[in-house]
Design a protein around this nucleic acid. Structure first.
Length: 892
RNA sequence: GGGAUCAUAGCUCAGCUGGGAGAGCAUUCGCUUGACGUGCGAAAGGUCACAGGUUCGAGCCCUGUUGGUCCCACCA
């Protein structure tokens, strides 16, 4: 051993160094190689404005675990990274930077502003990818992409033109969600409804009489949450079957303040049960009213400016904010005697998920993607299993959206983003949608062409991510080889924004699904179960955690003790536990290497292995099979737990302790067999742990195998994943060793109960008539003695020569006597045995009950019946042993 | 209004297709055990929310109830 591990586990010392080694060695890079099967993950591109938060950490840890696992399994593993231009987030960010310098976006102009954004991106856009490196992400940075790089731009334009040509993109005046703060339209998915206390204003409009004038006696009363929108009312509606208002069908009411007559329309949209059964209709400022308006051919009156203030259609309220106008209008209605009452009312207000501003529904010219046709293959793909969602319950959420899909508003009144490839002739108004600007108008020949001012929703480009990153629309070898990708790992919170849109885009443009499986994870919450948020200030910075505990500990914490798709709480104590585990691995490895120091360890002959060596190999073999299976089923938490248990319990607490006495034994073969087994079990354990804790496992692996003839690879990340082999299964040895372990535990238990100090050694007797048991103890004598604190161990077939006062431990087919002589309290020992006898009697009764139940015997599977029979046999036998011993003590 | 999900040890959560309740942390007791006190050994702690049902057998399946969380819809 030419190198040694440092005395203490210090992640900060190694992590950066190892990452650099990996990246520069090209281990992350994947090339098209038809001799190998590809395994591909596309990284959900973090925003260039982003700072690594726990959500990213979880998301990328999971991806890295999968990709490292598959890479070790021999797949050609590609993890495709990149970043998202995040149009609105970035634009807002840069605008506020400029504001600090006293610069206004509009004064600067579009071109200059975009230059500033690109500058900003050059300076800060790479921050998040640096942070992802700290996590240990083994993505192919050589293939890093950006949603606004040349290739992605091309893909976006191509898709837009394709969809337009197919009639799946259209421009039209629809009611859209308008953010008066960001000054842009947003999609339905970006609206977040927040419950807010407000009022319900009950207002009455006079009915218009035959003379065309408002009646002074007859009124129609209704309730509204937004009285200011009355300025844009163009009707009131009642349900056609509502007998209270039959007499008003075909008539009109008088719209106060505006002073004009508006019709009473009949529409089933009205709920007769709610309020008075009358609804004022404002097609310009309410999505439902817009629909009603369309059905009844009502005019649309827009009373609002883009900044949310009342416009010239609001008459004297022109220029007021909506809230000021509301108060003033209510006051005016009151003075006219038209305000009936005001009730407290709590209702959901649509807000912009980015800035929190109240959304104004407005009618505007926007671009839309027609969804009803596009969504069909996406729906079908999940329905027929072409794409699998994990956990499967996510199907319901998915279908809930696909079944209620509405057209997607894709235009944004922003500058930072993909500009819509629509061009207009300034002379004749002709619109041309094309991949590049036409030189002249195809209709009138004019050269005065301007491009549409709007940009596209950020998610329009992210929807293409699985194939745009692989080169589409070019027919690249990468696209052919790596597409469809295998797994998409993401949070369930962006299923609507992103997952569905990638799926329908994949089917539409590639003719194939973008990925086979979507693995959802939950949210990372704080210790009290609250969402981590900037406003609450309860976010835990992953970088600080890495600084303090190491990336390995952070990663391990994020994937353990959690089921797929469930939220998790993140606490310092949990990271500490993970760090302690890493420390354990570190020290165990250090100890192993210490003992190998200066020795020439060679592969032992099969017959030189001891039962305990075969036991650990067999246990390892089983855990390899289980962990591999869990990984393949995306049960990362379970897999991590099993690796943890194996290393901690089987390897450290038992195996190492069991073979310690052999390290410096005179029997060179024994020492060699023990150390060789130990080393190979450690290597395989490190491999199983590597996807979860890449750094520590690499450091140990490299140190451990340095200069080793059998060294498999220069890095554990390109070594081979352990496989289950029948040759490594030794069931008999497993049973034997487990029996001895049981005896050890029994003795430790008694020592602890009776307060026998460690220094007090006793001569232990194993009494058994069973030759196999005798043999087992014979071969395990060495460690049995040391682990049970025995001075010596005598194995014999009867209890001759054993002190009557000895304490006893019963295991199957054997009684172990520990004569602690002066320490033993016979009364206590009797009580202990009585208690044990009672327990066994209970177990026997239970087994007998089951086995004498005809229905159980006829219906239960045979394996279960045999299992119960064996248990009964064992309990009966133990019962005999205990009662014999008890009788003996009683006779004295 | 529709849907999802949770309720298991003091706390945070696992528990895969139904076959004798688990982990981590915390607690108690013991340990100068030659890798690790970021450690070792041991113990205590649970009518698996409640009520029914299916089954030879239910933490797990079904129905209902209660309480929490979340998503969607947006009755003005």
């Amino acid at each position: 051993m030419s190198r040694e591990l440092a005395k203490t586990y210090d992640p900060s010392d190694m992590e950066g160094r190892l990452y650099e080694k990996w990246e520069s060695s090209g281990y992350f890079h994947a090339e098209v190689d038809r001799s190998k099967k590809p395994f591909t993950i596309v990284m959900p591109p973090p925003n260039i404005t982003g700072q690594l938060h726990m959500g990213h950490a979880l998301d990328n840890t999971m991806q890295d675990i999968l990709i490292r696992f598959k890479r070790m399994q021999g797949y050609n593993a590609l993890w495709q990274p990149g970043t998202d231009h995040a149009s609105i987030a970035t634009e807002v960010r840069v605008m506020s930077e400029l504001k600090k310098q006293g610069i206004d976006k509009h004064e600067l102009g579009r071109e200059k502003f975009l230059e500033r954004v690109w500058d900003w991106r050059r300076e800060y856009g790479g921050r998040i990818t640096k942070q992802l490196r700290k996590l240990g992400s083994s993505c192919d940075w050589q293939r890093e992409r950006f949603t606004m790089d040349e290739g992605c731009n091309k893909a976006v334009t191509r898709v837009f033109v394709n969809l337009y040509d197919k009639g799946l993109i259209y421009k039209g005046a629809r009611i859209i969600n308008w953010c008066p703060v960001c000054n842009t339209s947003i999609s339905d998915a970006e609206v977040e409804y927040v419950e807010q206390p407000s009022h319900l204003w009950h207002i009455k409009y006079p009915v218009v009489g035959d003379d065309g004038k408002p009646s002074t006696t007859e009124f129609l009363t209704f309730a509204t949450t937004r009285p200011e929108t009355m300025l844009g009312d163009t009707a009131v509606a009642v349900h056609p079957d509502d007998e209270r208002y039959t007499h008003l069908h075909g008539r009109s009411v008088w719209l106060p303040i505006v002073n004009k007559a508006i019709p009473v329309v009949e529409d089933t949209y009205v709920d007769m049960e709610f309020g008075t059964g009358v609804v004022k209709i404002t097609p310009g400022h309410d999505p439902n009213d817009f629909e009603v308006g369309k059905r009844h051919n009502l005019p649309i009156v827009n009373v609002m400016n883009d900044d949310g203030t009342i416009n010239e259609n609001g008459g004297k309220y022109n220029g007021m904010t909506d809230m000021d106008a509301r108060a003033a209008i209510v006051e005016e209605l009151k003075s006219q005697g038209l305000l009936v009452k005001i009730e407290d009312y709590s209702h959901n207000v649509g807000t912009h998920d980015r800035c929190g501003a109240t959304i104004q529904p407005l009618v505007k010219q926007q671009w839309f993607v027609k969804m009803d046709e596009l969504i069909k293959p996406a729906e079908e793909g999940v329905k027929n299993g072409d794409i699998k969602l994990v956990p499967p319950r996510m199907d319901r959420t998915y279908f809930n959206w696909t079944e209620n899909i509405r057209d997607w508003c894709i235009s944004r009144q922003l500058w930072w983003g993909h500009r819509i490839p629509a061009y207009y002739c300034s002379d004749c108004g002709e619109m041309i949608v094309a991949e590049s600007a036409p030189e002249k108008c195809p209709k009138c020949g004019s050269v005065h062409i301007t491009q549409d001012e709007d940009t596209l929703d950020t998610w329009f480009s992210s929807a293409l991510w699985p194939f745009s990153t692989l080169g589409w629309p070019e027919k690249t070898p990468e696209l052919d080889y790596f597409y469809p990708t295998d797994v998409l790992v993401t949070g369930y919170d962006i299923i609507f924004f992103w997952v569905i849109r990638m799926i329908f885009s994949g089917y539409e443009h590639m003719g194939a699904k973008p990925f086979s499986t979507v693995l959802f994870h939950g949210l990372v919450r704080d210790g009290q179960g609250r969402k981590m948020s900037k406003s609450l200030g309860n976010g835990i910075d992953p970088l600080e955690v890495i600084e303090k505990y190491g990336a390995d500990a952070l990663r391990f914490t994020l994937v353990t003790g959690n089921a797929p798709g469930n939220d998790m709480r993140f606490t310092d104590e949990r990271v500490e536990a993970s760090r302690n585990f890493a420390n354990k691995v570190w020290n165990a490895s250090r100890f192993i290497m210490m003992n190998m120091e200066g020795k020439n360890i060679t592969r032992p002959a099969d017959e030189d292995l001891w039962p305990v060596d075969r036991w650990v190999l067999s246990r390892l073999n089983n855990v390899v099979a289980e962990v591999t299976d869990n990984m393949e089923k995306y049960e990362l938490g379970i897999a991590a737990g099993k690796v943890y248990d194996f290393i901690y319990d089987v390897l450290c607490d038992w195996y190492i302790e069991m073979i310690k006495p052999r390290f410096n034994s005179d029997d060179a073969k024994s020492a060699n067999a023990a150390l060789y087994t130990l080393k190979s079990v450690l290597i395989d354990s490190l491999k199983l742990l590597h996807p979860f804790m890449p750094f520590i496992t690499e450091e140990i692996f490299c140190t451990l195998t340095e200069g080793d003839e059998e060294r498999e690879a220069d890095s554990i990340m390109i070594s081979s994943w352990p496989v289950f082999t029948k040759q490594r299964q030794f069931e008999e040895d497993e049973a034997q060793i487990e029996l001895i372990k049981e005896a050890v535990r029994g003795i430790r238990n008694i020592r602890s109960e009776m307060n026998v100090p460690q220094s007090k050694k006793a001569n232990v007797f194993v009494v058994t008539g069973d030759e196999d048991v005798a043999k087992a103890f014979e071969s395990g004598r060495l460690f049995f003695e040391s682990l049970s604190g025995a001075a010596s161990c005598t194995i014999q077939s009867d209890r001759s020569g054993i002190d009557d006062d000895a304490v006893s431990v019963m295991i199957a087919n054997a009684v172990i006597y520990i004569p602690f002589a002066e320490l033993v309290d016979i009364a206590a020992e009797k009580a202990r045995l009585e208690k044990e006898l009672g327990r066994l009697a209970g177990e026997i009764k239970r087994c007998e009950g089951m086995l004498s139940n005809d229905k159980f015997m006829s219906k239960a599977p045979e394996a279960k019946i045999n299992e119960e029979k064996e248990k009964l046999e064992k309990y009966r036998q133990l019962h005999v042993q205990v009662s014999e011993r008890l009788d003996m003590l009683k006779k004295r």
